[in-house]
Design a protein around this nucleic acid. Structure first.
Lengths: 201, 201
DNA sequence: GTCTATACTTGGATAGAC
DNA sequence: GTCTATCCAAGTATAGAC
């Protein structure tokens, strides 16, 4: 395994375990069994490494989200897909890393714009997915996809913060079950023809 | 102004501006124009001070939320009230402080349980407010107040993270306008008699 | 209760040997 | 490209004068 990769993996691991405030060059090196000087040789500094790590997890998860979500055409399917991938995220720690980086940006303002650039694709992705399934509905949804997408990303970040704080995923799980149930309900009410309610009709 | 109070205010100010990672004893002292040693004399350590600061902002905001929300009986009123107080929060920075403390807890595990104890009252408060207005509706809402409350608190935290990151409150504003509109719609649809739709009926 | 001084630790960063 | 050694800045914490 290449050194650059090992450093990035160690950085991700440290961000997940110790948060932004606990992710020092020395801590990362210890986690990865690496020499601390390598971080500066390969990345120039800790913040640059953290951005590279964010890129890595973001790309990885985005590919996975596309796999799961791109085929989806109905609201209940989208909810089910979102719940499934988010469960993976809680384990993979991707959103934890994102949340820590966003919170940490306050102490290193130069990170702000860089992180913004890495968050926007996620809001765009959510917007497109939402637009796709709501376009399929026989009614006009009174929530612009753009706003719904912002809310969903915010909600995911907040759930991650609370779930990790409480060390308990049960509330998040219940929320996703609830969402799936609601989406199915909505689909049944407004447009059985395009939803999974096809069997019912 | 008493020293303890000045230290707490400086700690809040620093948390808002520089985040958890940037909130050192020295930084707090500089912000408050205080001697750094006073923090240890009065609070024993930085983390203890931060918890005291969280108590302070939490108590202050909780009193305000109670003022605004306790009289509310309908869903649209609750949405309007929530939007109004949350706008204050974005300015007062209360939720910013909370989000930073939660994110920072990963680097100081002993903070975790203490912060949990300070977050729970907010979920309970939201649950009670939601339960009150949904009990007034003529239909049974398919979302347990407990789950809705968890989602709302998570959403607030996430919106704060994104809003502060982007340095732009417009998306949050639009979301609250949207929420108010939706709540009014729901009230009109399911139960004009108990909502502000009284005039319409 | 407050300030100065200081001890000690941790973190970012680099020079230079290998 | 990697490791050792090291410098310097920043952080926590305390002792002791005032």
């Amino acid at each position: 395994m290449e050194t650059r990769t090992r450093i990035v993996e160690a950085a991700l691991e440290t961000l997940k375990r110790d948060g932004f405030a606990g992710t020092s060059a020395r801590a990362i090196a210890a986690v990865g069994g690496l020499n601390q000087a390598l971080i500066f040789y390969h990345f120039g500094g800790v913040n640059e490494l953290l951005l590279a790590a964010l890129d890595e997890t973001s790309d990885r998860r985005m590919a996975r989200y596309r796999d799961v979500v791109d085929g989806v055409q109905t609201l209940p399917e989208l909810m089910a897909a979102a719940a499934a991938v988010y469960r993976e995220d809680l384990e993979s720690g991707h959103i934890k890393v994102l949340a820590e980086m966003i919170a940490g940006a306050s102490s290193a303002p130069e990170l702000g714009p860089e992180i913004v650039r890495r968050v926007e694709p996620w809001i765009d992705f959510a917007r497109d997915a939402i637009a796709r399934v709501t376009d399929g509905l026989p009614i006009t949804v009174p929530v612009p996809a753009e706003d719904a997408a912002f809310a969903i990303v915010a909600l995911f970040l907040g759930i991650e913060l609370l779930t990790h704080l409480e060390g308990d995923t049960s509330r998040a799980e219940r929320l996703f079950d609830l969402g799936s149930g609601l989406a199915t309900m909505v689909a049944l009410l407004v447009g059985p023809a395009t939803g999974p309610a096809k069997e019912v009709n």
